[in-house]
């Protein structure tokens, strides 16, 4: 049977990490992680009295089971979360969903394109590759609205010397770094060693589609591109129905989809094919 009732976690650390964004460290209370957590998986947080929503791990559990999450205040639930203090307790269900295809990274050259808070779901991937001495094969193109909106400040500082890191800003950057990450994609590929073997992207859905299209136009297969989609969720285990992508649920088959799978899912519905949402960082 599925377990909908959360386990208890305690907030052990909070610090500001970008405009309206905070970095939380959680610690299990009265339980140990009984399943290994895959990079790119997610968990559900229950805020008693406020609701539940999915969040991503920005670090995998340490020896004390502590793990991190980068969270931006965008709605009622996160507003409530931001009012909590160290020591407060919350509900936790995880790990959930399918993460990034680590087994396919092997010796491949990896390009990661992230927008806004979309950097959070790729953070564990970058650390994984660095820890496996693969940092040199990684290029990260990270786009944000402005300097203040950038998240994972400490992580980016740590990654800076180990991977190739390119950052773009919609506002407040010099010409070489101004605009959307998609506008810099081709240039980044050209400058940093040519076409990658695998692309991971996370950010606004429109951005991810544009990234995939550019990469495919440049010669990659659609099966070389992976994306992590965001969806509203009310259970995380394939019951509540909210996170559908055609006949799949992002909480079970996703949130990481191979782009050709995502395309064929979207192509099953005429209206979804037609509809292009707006580009909006979260």
């Amino acid at each position: 049977m599925l377990q909908l009732t959360p386990q208890t976690i305690r907030i052990v650390n909070i610090y500001d990490d970008g405009t309206n964004a905070k970095h939380f460290t959680f610690e299990p209370k009265g339980f140990v992680h009984d399943k290994p957590i895959g990079i790119g998986q997610f968990f559900m947080l229950t805020l008693p009295g406020a609701g539940l929503a999915p969040f991503t791990y920005t670090s995998l559990p340490d020896e004390n089971g502590r793990f991190n999450a980068l969270i931006r205040k965008v709605g009622r639930l996160t507003e409530n979360l931001f009012s909590l203090k160290e020591g407060d307790v919350l509900g936790y269900n995880g790990p959930l969903g399918n993460g990034w295809p680590v087994e396919q990274f092997e010796d491949k050259k990896v390009l990661i394109v992230a927008g806004g808070c979309g950097l959070a779901p790729v953070a564990t991937t970058i650390d994984y590759l660095i820890n496996n001495n693969r940092g040199e094969s990684v290029t990260l193109l990270y786009g944000a609205r402005d300097l203040g909106s950038q998240v994972l400040t400490k992580e980016r500082a740590r990654w800076q010397t180990k991977i190739t890191l390119c950052e773009t800003l919609e506002e407040g950057a010099d010409n070489a770094h101004s605009g959307l990450p998609t506008q810099h994609l081709l240039q980044t590929i050209k400058e940093y060693g040519g076409l990658p073997s695998i692309v991971l992207t996370c950010g606004p859905e429109v951005m991810m589609k544009a990234v995939a299209k550019t990469c495919i136009d440049s010669g990659l297969q659609s099966s070389d591109v992976w994306m992590s989609v965001e969806r509203r969720m009310r259970c995380g285990v394939g019951l509540c129905g909210h996170c559908y992508v055609a006949n799949s649920y992002a909480c079970k088959q996703g949130p990481a989809y191979r782009y050709d799978d995502y395309l064929s899912l979207n192509n099953k519905m005429v209206s979804t094919q037609q509809h292009q949402g707006a580009f909006q960082y979260c």
Binding site: V74, R76, E205, E230, R232, H242, C243, T272, G277, C282
Partner: peptide, 9 residues
């Protein structure tokens, strides 16, 4: 399906 950010698939 509307997310907190306002994005609605």
């Amino acid at each position: 399906q509307r997310e907190a950010s306002g994005h609605n698939p």
